[in-house]
């Protein structure tokens, strides 16, 4: 297990370094940052001044090491727009995004796993078809449209739930349900396929031949085997939820990281954009590492094999 952990950590650090280089380079390859900052009508001299001011005239690798060195000490630079430290700007907003991502994935899983198990236990019955229908619905309906429907019904007509802001738990219900509905189908289909596969296996027949309680067979012997790919998918989906909620954060006026990224892109606030891209990638890497470790804990063949 320790060997496994060290190996995975080592790979994760390598990936993080690679990603930071790419995040750094992409922004600079997307155009002349100094020219963009100076404005459309700027003269050559003005652009040179801007470049000097922000250190953009230095060779790219020096700029990178400068940035990376500061980043390692928690200094991500300052926003070009508000002059606030970027780390602080992100830190203020990350809570909202984390909460939304967490609630969404919980809602998604709470719907997906029981439905997926039921569908696998009774394949090709009405319950299987119903859950398939729900999955198609969740996958097909655009997030923003579903969000607007919810706002219309529960916010405007029934007035049960607040439609904007992030002050209370109630504010998160609609956005989290919207996102949960969006991520539910993949989890449900994966649960169904995995369970169908496992339920046909020899060791499940053994468990039945041992006279175990059917619930124990299903939720201990079968699900433990079928859950492995779901854990891996969770890492991917959580990463997506951390970065891909821009539209929903705008609709529900949730002041999260996605919203900040969106604003910063439109304002050409490159230190912020670069930091967000890097931090999200870092989150992906950490989540993947975590899911690998959880899977190793769940499956001895990964841990000891």
């Amino acid at each position: 297990m320790v060997k496994f952990l060290i190996h995975r950590l080592y790979i994760s650090v390598l990936v993080a370094i690679t990603v930071s280089v790419i995040a750094f380079a992409l922004l600079r390859l997307s155009g002349d940052l100094a020219a963009e900052l100076a404005g459309e009508d700027a003269s050559e001299e003005e652009i040179t001044v801007v470049a000097k001011q922000y250190g953009l005239d230095r060779p790219m690798y020096i700029q990178y090491f400068d940035w990376a060195g500061n980043a390692l000490q928690g200094d991500l630079g300052r926003s070009l727009f508000t002059n606030e430290p970027v780390a602080e700007m992100i830190f203020e907003r990350i809570g909202v995004t984390l909460k939304l991502a967490f609630y969404s994935i919980v809602i998604g899983l709470v719907m997906a796993i029981p439905l997926g198990v039921l569908a696998a236990v009774k394949p090709n019955t009405w319950i299987d078809r119903m859950s398939l229908g729900l999955a198609v619905f969740g996958q097909a309906i655009p997030n923003f449209f579903f969000a607007l429907l919810l706002i219309l019904v529960f916010g405007v007509q029934l007035r049960w739930l607040p439609i904007s802001g992030n002050d209370t738990l109630a504010h998160f219900i609609m956005p989290a349900f919207t996102l949960g509905m969006g991520v539910m189908p993949q989890f449900m289909r994966l649960t169904r396929t995995g369970m169908l596969d496992v339920l046909g296996s020899d060791f499940i027949r053994t468990a039945r031949a041992k006279g175990l309680n059917p619930m124990r067979v299903l939720f201990k012997h079968a699900l433990r085997n079928a859950i492995l790919p779901i854990v891996s998918l969770m890492a991917v989906v959580l990463g997506f939820l951390l970065g891909g909620t821009v539209i929903l954060e705008s609709i529900f006026a949730l002041n999260g990281v996605g919203f900040l990224a969106f604003e910063s892109i439109t304002r050409q606030d490159f230190p912020v954009v670069q930091s967000i891209v890097f931090l999200l990638s870092l989150a992906y890497i950490i989540l993947t590492l975590l899911s690998d470790l959880i899977n190793a804990q769940l499956d001895p063949r990964i841990r000891l094999g």
Binding site: F203, T206, H221, N225, D299, P300, R301
Partner: peptide, 16 residues
């Protein structure tokens, strides 16, 4: 009690 054909697949891989 029942003993099955393939011992490689008849035991659950994730439990001791």
């Amino acid at each position: 009690g029942m003993i099955f054909q393939d011992p490689m697949t008849s035991l659950n891989p994730v439990f001791r």
